[in-house]
Each structure stands twice: as C-alpha cells, then as structure tokens.
Design a protein around this nucleic acid. Structure first.
Lengths: 347, 347
DNA sequence: TTGTACGCGTTATCAT
DNA sequence: ATGATAACGCGTACAA
C-alpha cells in the first residue's frame, strides 16, 4: 500500500491521481478533461471537473513539461536598448498570458556577438519553450527565425514591416504614418525639412526614411543629401546629428527624428544654441515614449501601438492552446500625436 | 530491447542514461557528478565528466524540476512604474544568472489589488520557483515576504533601507546620500529649500525625507511645512507640486525631488513660468534615470546602484548553488552625480 | 468512450 | 564509493 491510496493531505498538493480516484475514473480520463479532449462523455467531464474544483487541483507544470517535452513558458527575445519599449512589450505579453498557464521568461541577446545564434539555440533546446516573441531590431534577423523553426520552437516577430508571413509577424505601418507626419510639417508651410535617420540595417530606420521621402516626393520637394543626418537611436547621436543640421545655412525649419530619444537630442541641442522650439524649429519624433511628453516643449510624435502589438503577438503564439482569442491581427496602425513641438516656420 | 540500448542518435539529445552507459557507471553516479556530490572517487568523476563533454550532455531542466520539486527559475516580482529601473534590475539579475542553469521569469503585481497575495501564492506554488527577487516598492510588503517563507520559496528584497536580515535584503543608503545632496545645496548658499516627497507609505519616500531633514537640522535651518509638497513619483505630480512651491513667496531657491520623474516635472513647470534653472532655481533629483541627463539643463541627481543591487540580490539567491560567488553585500552605496541644475541662489 | 501499462529524464532511498 | 529500484506527476499507445 503506497501513499497514494490515502486522501490528499498533509500539505501535499492534489495530483491527477487524487482527482481520478475521487471521481472514480482513470488518470487518462482526467488528463483528457484537462486537455479538452473532444471525445468525452459530458457527464464524465462534469463529474471530473467538479472534483477538480473541490480539490482546487492544478496540473503540475513540471510534470507536464517533462511528459510533453515542452515547457509552458513564452520567451521574450530582445536586444532593444529602449527600456520603456521593452517594458511595454512585456506588459502586452503578460496581458495576453494573463489567466493562462503560461509564464514569461526574458532573454536579452547581443546582436553583435558571434555566439548569439548558438546561445539562443542552446537556450531554446534546453528550456523547450512553448514559443518566443522576438522584438525589434533583432526580430529582423532571418537566421534567428530559421533557427526557431529548426529547433521546433514557435515564434512571432514584431517589427516595422511585414518580414514574415502573418502567422509569424505583428507589424506596424511605419512608412505610412511617417509620410503623414511629414505631410503635417509640409502642410504647416515647411519646405526645408531635415531627417535624422536610424542606424543602417534597421528595417524601422529604412521604413521611416521611405515614408519621409514619400511625403517630400508627393509634395514635389527635393531632399538634398545634406538634410539627412545619421543617428543611432540614442539621445547622444540625436544631439550630434541635430548640431550638424543646425549648422547648415540655410537652416532647416523642421526636423523629423526616427525616434523620440533622438528627437529629445534635437531639443537639447536647440536649447543649447538658443533656438526656440517650435517658433524657430519644428520637431517630430517617433515612439511616444514618456520622454516625449516630459521634455519642454512636449513633443509631437508618432505613437507605436506597442502594448497592443505585443499582446497580439503573444496571443498569436498561445492562441491555439487557450481556446482561441480568435484570429490575431498582423498589422496594427500607428498614429500621430499632436503636442507642442510643431508650428509654422518663421517667415 | 528498447531504444535506449542503442547509441544516442537520430537527433535525440543525450540523456543521463547515455552518459551512464558510455561511462560504464550507473545513472546515480552520473547524477552525483552533475550535482557535485563530495563522496565520489576522483577517477570515476573524471571518466564521467569526459563522457559528458564528448556527448555535449546537458541535464534536462524539466526532468530535474520534476524530481527536485523545484524549478530552476528565478522570479522577478515588481510593481514598479519606472521602466528604466525595472529594466536595469532585470539586467542585473540576468548578469548574475549568466552562465548558470537559471532563467528569469517576470511577474508584475498590483499593489492595490486585494488578490495580490493570493495571486502570488498561486504563482509560487504552481511554478515552484527556485527563488524570487522582489523590487521596491512592493518589496516593503512584509506579508509578501512571509508568504514566500510559507510556501518555501527563497526571496531577496531590494529597497531603500534594511527591512529584513542580510540574507534577504539588498539595500541602499538613501537617507545618507540625500543628506549629502541637501548639504550640497546648503553649501551653495541656499536657505529656502523645498522638498517634493514620494508617496505616503513608501519607505524610500520616508528615508529620503529623513535625509533631507537631517541636513537642514544639522545646518540649523528650519523646515516650514509649506516647503514640503507631496508627490507620487510621477512626472505629473512633480509638475503640480512644483507649481505649488513656486507660488510661494518668498519662493524657494532650490528644490529636492525624491525622484527624477518629479524633478523633470519641476524643470517643466519652471520652464513654463520662465524661471531659469539653475540661475533662479536649483534642482536635485534621485535615481539617475536617463531622463535626468536628457532634459535641459541636465539634472544633478543621486545615482542608485540599481544594476549592482540586482546582481547582488540574484547572487545571494543562487549563490549556494553556483558554487558561491562568495558573500554578497547587503548595502550598496548611492552617489551624488553633479550636472548643471545646481548653482548658487540669486542674490 | 474509457482504462492499462509504460515512458519522459532526473533524483532519492537504501542497499552493498 | 557505487548501484538497483522506486519515486516525481502527467501524457500516450494500445487495448478493451
């Protein structure tokens, strides 16, 4: 006679055996209830579910992971330097995982490390994650996506454009919304508009630049190379790039920066030089991170629907398990947020 | 004859059985090698380790979790609204976990929810975490710490003062460093110094206020109630509180804010009113989040050693396992960072 | 539709 | 010091 023949007691948490015994069925039947097997007598199911409720039974995740050779963990792979963005993504993912049996494990990677792919492979193979959500910019790495496929790990990538099929991608319409933003500047009367780009090789940088160019082209404006400054998505490079643009003569009357950090750098540089914003210089950023609203003047910027995107990505990942939150969108629109950093150019 | 009698092949990852067979020992012996059992023949150990290397064997975490009734996961419990701080903590924890078998799972909680404790209990009991790191301000909740004890989960709390014994706490010296910061203002000649507090019930808010008062008292200055404004650690409450203080007559010539967000609010409010910083108003913040360096003028502030604290906390948690990074400190000092928001008062 | 017997990969018990 | 055997809690062939 072993311990299991007794009632669940002594602090021991109830197991599937306890449920089976009390419900007068076999383990397998309980297992079927847990896993929502369709071929089950309704009556039996209800009896089992009743016992589950009474015992407050929850399946042991470790045991399930071993048997299924798959953990109930969703990984978040990122190499994003922007804290607010990463945290918003985490929030979105966690919202989607709310009430499910999934947990989120975070895995930062180093884009520039030669070991990156090997590290991730090791991670995925060892932990047997249910799936991963990959944040930009590392999400643009196709080799990483292929690696996930190889090791049999589901994935959803987030980014500024459709880099993958709908099942594996949640994107925003960066190009379109930047075109809108630039058109807004043009509509205010600006003709000499500078651009601070994101780093080479980033899809987001490219999309935003394309949108910028689209707007100028549509308005019949030319874009001299000198009005484009390179940045690295950091505040410091924003300052440097802004200084270069503000040294120009004639000086641009407006600048679009590919993200808020760099836009904050513009404001900083302008302030140092005594250039008034928006009276003498209009600025538009991108992301709508808190800094955009907290500097002076508050920045007109583009709001990336980060939380919704992350939520959609996570739902896409676990959707089939949790009984379908239905089809998840693969494209979520950004929108222009009007604050106080844009005005008509000085006359 | 079952599959295991063959060589490890066909993409199957090697198991402890493969190692045992090839090394000509039993599973248990391999297990002893993995778990660094002291009672082992050196010769045997080396033979096993050689096979482990050759096979590139790694123990299956899911199986270990089931057998040990303990997952190799470190939880991060937080209710912190400051993204940069949370992400820095994550970074510190991950640095400590680097190269170990541990992963980090993130768990935000709602301080104000009546279900908070129940949720966390459920989480801890289900996931059988190895341990958790608890971030402020939820780390100040003693009931949460007791809960961890109850369910047999190790924990380390982070905070602004020693709230627990050294094994369960990593703190900073907020009170002392705020005293220093305030003394710096006094040394510049300020006599009318305002304080924007953190929210009631936060230990950090209390410690920082005490440090502020310490300095005034030591300098023989009085602190009229009107010079203390309440805040909520948010930018917006910083603006509101600053406006109240700046309406005073005579107006304070310096303000210490209990965090950078609120300090940024002061700068914002001053800018709206045309009050020049630091010429007409000196400001000191706390935390040294990026915003402090990115607004104009760059903020003098206190740098919290967040990453180091988190690293120490995580090491404290897993230290006994990973072969001891030695004793971890329970107190890490903050330091004053001098930038451009402090000057002598106008005469 | 339901149950039996076994596998998942590891650690623990108790021998020797 | 080492090994045989039984847990750990759940899923799955395959039989009934």
């Amino acid at each position: 006679m072993n311990a299991k023949s007794g009632q669940a007691k002594g602090g021991r948490k109830p197991t599937i055996n306890d449920v089976a015994r009390l419900a007068g069925v076999s383990k397998k039947t309980v297992s079927r209830v847990i896993n929502r097997s369709p071929l089950l007598n309704d009556e039996t199911r209800e009896r089992v579910e009743k016992v589950i409720r009474e015992l407050d039974y929850t399946p042991n995740p470790q045991a399930r992971a071993l048997a299924l050779r798959r953990n109930f963990l969703v990984g978040l792979i990122h190499d994003n330097p922007n804290a607010q963005m990463v945290l918003n993504m985490q929030q979105g993912i966690l919202e989607a995982l709310q009430g499910t049996e999934f947990e989120m494990v975070v895995r930062p990677v180093d884009r520039n490390s030669s070991m990156m792919l090997e590290d991730v492979r090791h991670f995925l193979e060892r932990q047997r994650l249910f799936g991963v959500v990959i944040l930009p910019p590392i999400s643009e790495n196709d080799a990483l996506a292929r690696l996930c496929d190889e090791v049999g790990c589901r994935y959803v990538r987030m980014g500024s454009a459709q880099l993958d099929d709908a099942a594996h991608m949640v994107a925003s319409n960066d190009r379109e919304v930047v075109r809108e933003a630039t058109q807004h500047l043009i509509a205010q009367g600006h003709r000499l508009i500078g651009l601070i780009e994101g780093p080479d090789g980033f899809r987001s940088a490219r999309e935003r630049r394309l949108g910028f160019e689209d707007a100028l082209k549509a308005a019949g404006l030319t874009l001299p190379r000198s009005l484009i400054a390179g940045g690295n998505y950091t505040f410091e490079t924003g300052v440097t790039a802004a200084n270069r643009l503000l040294d120009l003569s004639p000086r641009p009357t407006a600048i679009f920066a590919s993200n808020d950090e760099m836009a904050a750098g513009i404001v900083f540089a302008a302030r140092e030089r005594g250039i008034a914003i928006p009276e003498e210089l209009s600025v538009i950023g991108f992301d709508d991170t808190p800094i955009a609203a907290h500097i002076w003047p508050p920045l007109t910027t583009v709001r990336w629907p980060i939380v919704s995107m992350a939520r959609a990505a996570a739902r896409k990942l676990v959707g089939d398990m949790t009984g379908g939150a239905g089809e998840q969108p693969s494209m979520l629109p950004s929108m222009l947020i009007h604050r106080s950093s844009v005005a008509a150019p000085p006359r």
